[in-house]
Computed example of a mutant assay.
Amino acid sequence: MTEHSSWQIQRRLLQYLNDGQFYSGSWLGKELQLSRTAIANHMQQLQRLGLDIFSVKGKGYRLATPLQLLDREAIQQWQSDDSAPIEVLSITDSTNLQLMQRLQQGEVLPKGLVLVAEAQTAGRGRHGRLWYSPFAASLSFSMAWQLEQGIQAAMGLSLVVGVAVAEMLEADYQLSPQLKWPNDIYLAGKKLAGILIELSGQSDGRCQLVIGIGINVQLPAGQAARQIDQPWADLTSVLGTLDRNQLVARLQSRCAGQLRRFELLGFAPFQAEFNRRHLFANQAVQLMQGQQLVRGICHGVDAQGNLVIENQGKKQLFHGGELSLRAEN
C-alpha cells in the first residue's frame, strides 16, 4: 500500500471518528473493505502521530476530541484573489525541509507560496531542537520568499515575522501576545509559537528564504507535558473552537504584507512594534553566548534588530547566532 492510499484510508477513519462516537473495528472494516487487523494497524499509526484515540474492548474506537483537518479548497475560500498558492500535506518530515529541498533542486517557487502539514515527524526549532507537532493539533506552516538585496538584507527578519504573527493574533483573535527575541511568540508568559528562518543564496545576490512558523493549536495535554520542557499555551485553550483553515489564510496574508513592507523600509519601522510587545522589556535577563553568560537589563531591540542589554551602565548589542535569552531568576 502506498503512503498516499494509506493516508486516504486514515482520513476516512478520522471522518467517521470525528463525531465523538465509538465505532467498532469490524464495522469500520466493512465500510472500508479492510480486515479488523488492518483497521487496528491504521489506528496505531495515527496514535503514533500524537492523536488521542480511545480503544475500548467491546465498543471500538473514539477520538478524545474532534478534529478539523486542513483542506486546500477550504483554505482558498479565505484567501484573496492575489494570494500565492497554499499546498497541504498530510504527514511530512518538515515543511521547511521540503521547501528547502525544492529550492536546492532548482525549482522556482512563487513568492509567498505556503506549505502546511497535518503533522511533522522531524519538525525543528532553533539550534536543531525538535519542534513537537502532533497530528492536527498544531499549525506547521512554511512560506517561500525572496530578497533581491541578498542575505545581508535579512537582518531582523525573524522579528518582523514575529510582529506579523502577533498582529494577526491581536486583530483577528483579540489576543495579547508577547514576543521573545529572536523568534518566539508567548501568550500569558507561556510559549505559543516559534519561528525558524532558513536562507539560501549569496551575500550580495538574490536570497531565497523559507520562513517556518509553528503554532500550538490544540495540543494533547498529557503528551505535550512529556514532550515540551517549558510552559506552553495553545489557541484552543483560550479561544475554544478554531478554524485552522482560516488561520492558515490569515497567517499567509499578514506575513506577506509585512514582508513587503520590510523589503521597502527595512527593520527600523518594526522596532517600536516589536519592543512594545517584548516579553522581557526592562527586565533583568541573562543571555548565554556560547560559554559566556551576560547579565543585565533588557532594553528590547535597536533599529537594526540587535538585542540591547545594559550592564553596569554600559549597553551591549547582540545579534543572531547561538544565543539563548532567559529572565534572570
Rank of each mutant, 00 (worst) to 15 (best):
residue 238 V to T: 15
residue 202 Q to K: 10
residue 164 A to W: 02
residue 125 G to E: 01
residue 35 S to W: 09
residue 41 N to Y: 14
residue 227 Q to S: 11
residue 128 G to V: 02
residue 245 N to K: 05
residue 33 Q to K: 15
residue 308 V to S: 02
residue 238 V to G: 13
residue 91 I to V: 15
residue 21 Q to V: 11
residue 126 R to V: 01
residue 34 L to E: 06
residue 236 T to P: 08
residue 10 Q to R: 13
residue 28 L to T: 00
residue 324 S to H: 14
residue 285 V to K: 06
residue 132 Y to A: 00
residue 155 M to I: 11
residue 251 L to A: 01
residue 23 Y to E: 00
residue 195 I to F: 13
residue 113 L to K: 09
residue 191 K to C: 09
residue 149 Q to P: 08
residue 297 I to P: 14
residue 97 L to F: 06
residue 45 Q to T: 11
residue 54 F to K: 09
residue 168 M to C: 05
residue 244 R to Y: 07
residue 69 L to A: 15
residue 225 A to M: 07
residue 168 M to G: 02
residue 220 P to D: 06
residue 54 F to W: 02
residue 201 G to E: 00
residue 111 K to E: 03
residue 206 R to N: 05
residue 22 F to R: 00
residue 118 E to M: 09
residue 11 R to N: 01
residue 62 R to G: 03
residue 6 S to E: 11
residue 270 F to Y: 08
residue 212 G to V: 10
residue 155 M to F: 10
residue 103 L to H: 11
residue 262 F to C: 04
residue 313 G to Q: 12
residue 308 V to T: 03
residue 131 W to E: 04
residue 245 N to M: 01
residue 20 G to K: 03
residue 153 A to R: 07
residue 268 A to S: 07
residue 234 D to T: 09
residue 2 T to P: 11
residue 147 L to R: 01
residue 145 W to P: 05
residue 323 L to T: 13
residue 202 Q to H: 12
residue 224 A to C: 07
residue 295 R to A: 04
residue 80 S to M: 06
residue 62 R to Q: 14
residue 114 V to W: 07
residue 136 A to V: 06
residue 211 I to G: 07
residue 138 S to D: 07
residue 242 L to A: 14
residue 258 Q to F: 00
residue 304 Q to Y: 15
residue 162 G to K: 04
residue 252 Q to G: 06
residue 145 W to A: 11
residue 70 L to I: 14
residue 225 A to C: 12
residue 242 L to G: 12
residue 88 V to P: 10
residue 124 R to W: 03
residue 133 S to F: 01
residue 267 F to L: 04
residue 71 D to P: 15
residue 296 G to D: 12
residue 274 F to R: 00
residue 323 L to E: 07
residue 159 L to V: 06
residue 327 A to P: 15
residue 30 K to E: 14
residue 278 H to N: 12
residue 232 W to H: 09
residue 67 L to V: 06
residue 182 P to W: 00
residue 138 S to V: 04
residue 228 I to D: 13
residue 300 G to W: 10
residue 49 L to N: 05
residue 152 Q to R: 08
residue 104 Q to A: 08
residue 34 L to T: 04
residue 66 P to L: 03
residue 147 L to D: 05
residue 175 L to C: 06
residue 197 I to N: 12
residue 166 A to M: 03
residue 179 L to I: 15
residue 56 V to N: 07
residue 321 G to N: 12
residue 81 D to P: 12
residue 85 P to G: 05
residue 314 K to D: 00
residue 203 S to P: 03
residue 179 L to S: 08
residue 60 G to K: 10
residue 18 N to V: 09
residue 96 N to D: 08
residue 231 P to V: 04
residue 69 L to Y: 08
residue 140 S to L: 10
residue 101 Q to G: 03
residue 212 G to W: 04
residue 55 S to I: 02
residue 167 E to L: 00
residue 96 N to P: 15
residue 213 I to T: 15
residue 201 G to R: 06
residue 303 A to V: 10
residue 20 G to V: 10
residue 131 W to L: 04
residue 6 S to Y: 03
residue 322 E to Y: 13
residue 89 L to S: 15
residue 180 K to T: 00
residue 228 I to E: 08
residue 329 N to L: 13
residue 38 A to G: 13
residue 36 R to H: 03
residue 85 P to F: 08
residue 278 H to I: 00
residue 88 V to M: 09
residue 260 R to D: 11
residue 185 I to T: 11
residue 253 S to K: 07
residue 76 Q to F: 02
residue 264 L to R: 14
residue 98 Q to W: 12
residue 1 M to R: 14
residue 248 V to R: 03
residue 113 L to R: 10
residue 228 I to L: 14
